[in-house]
Simulated assay, not measured.
Amino acid sequence: MTVEEIHGVRVLTVPGQGPAIRGGADALDLIAASFEEQAEFVVIPVERLDPAFFTLSNGLAGEFLQKLVNYRLRVAIVGDVSAHVEGSNALRDFVRESNRRKQNWFLASRDELRERLASEVAVSPEA
């Protein structure tokens, strides 16, 4: 995993290659790594997520993301999720609602992540 600072936010990035991220136990591993690196944001490439993550009815996505939120970590799933949302209104709505908030984002690219974090800095009362 790599760590970098983007617009004042310490970001831990999961590598694109490796075992599939499946659920709660994997979330705990990311929480531990984030605490060790003092990161406040975790970036996960979409290709690292188990395909079952995108079936909302099984609860994997909810369990995974909630664990990270409980530890005040923000998450960006980065990559093309269009194949997963196609034909799933629930998932499409989940992605849309997530992107309206600050905690969990589904973004097409790291450039989009940089833009979103930059826009937060621009509107921050501390900026």
Rank of each mutant, 00 (worst) to 15 (best):
E63C: 03
E97M: 10
K102S: 14
P125G: 09
V95M: 04
I6A: 01
V3G: 01
K67L: 15
N70S: 08
D80W: 08
A25H: 07
E47G: 13
G23T: 08
G79T: 07
L28Q: 10
A52H: 02
G18A: 09
L73D: 01
A20V: 05
G79N: 06
E120D: 14
I6V: 14
E5D: 11
R72S: 11
S98F: 04
V43K: 02
Y71Q: 09
E37F: 01
V46R: 08
V81G: 03
A20Y: 05
V11H: 03
G8N: 10
G87C: 11
R22M: 06
V42W: 11
S82N: 11
E5R: 04
N58I: 15
V43L: 06
N99D: 08
A61E: 04
I21N: 02
Q66G: 01
I31Q: 03
A25K: 08
E37R: 15
F35E: 14
V95N: 01
A20M: 12
R74N: 05
R72T: 03
L28K: 05
E36K: 13
E120F: 12
E112G: 03
L107N: 10
N104I: 15
R72H: 09
R96W: 04
G16P: 05
P15I: 14
Y71G: 00
R10H: 07
G87E: 08
K67F: 11
E120H: 10
L107S: 07
P51M: 04
D26Y: 05
S119C: 01
S119Q: 15
I77P: 02
V42P: 05
A39N: 11
L65K: 02
A61P: 06
F94C: 10
V9Y: 01
E47S: 10
G87F: 10
A20S: 08
I6R: 07
G16I: 11
A90Y: 10
Q17Y: 10
A33H: 06
R114E: 14
D111V: 08
R72E: 10
R10M: 07
A122E: 15
V3W: 03
A90Q: 12
V9H: 03
G8I: 10
N58R: 07
E4Y: 01
R48G: 04
A27K: 05
G16A: 15
L107I: 13
E36Q: 13
E115I: 15
L91W: 03
E86T: 14
E37Q: 15
R74Y: 02
L30D: 00
F54L: 03
G79C: 13
Q17V: 15
R110F: 13
D93V: 11
V123N: 06
R72I: 00
A61T: 02
R92I: 00
V81Q: 02
S109E: 09
S88E: 04
P125V: 15
P19L: 12
E47N: 12
R101K: 14
R10G: 05
G87L: 13
N99E: 11
S109N: 09
A83P: 00
M1T: 09
V3L: 12
V85N: 02
I44S: 03
E63F: 00
V14N: 04
V85P: 00
R114C: 10
I44F: 03
R110P: 00
P51T: 02
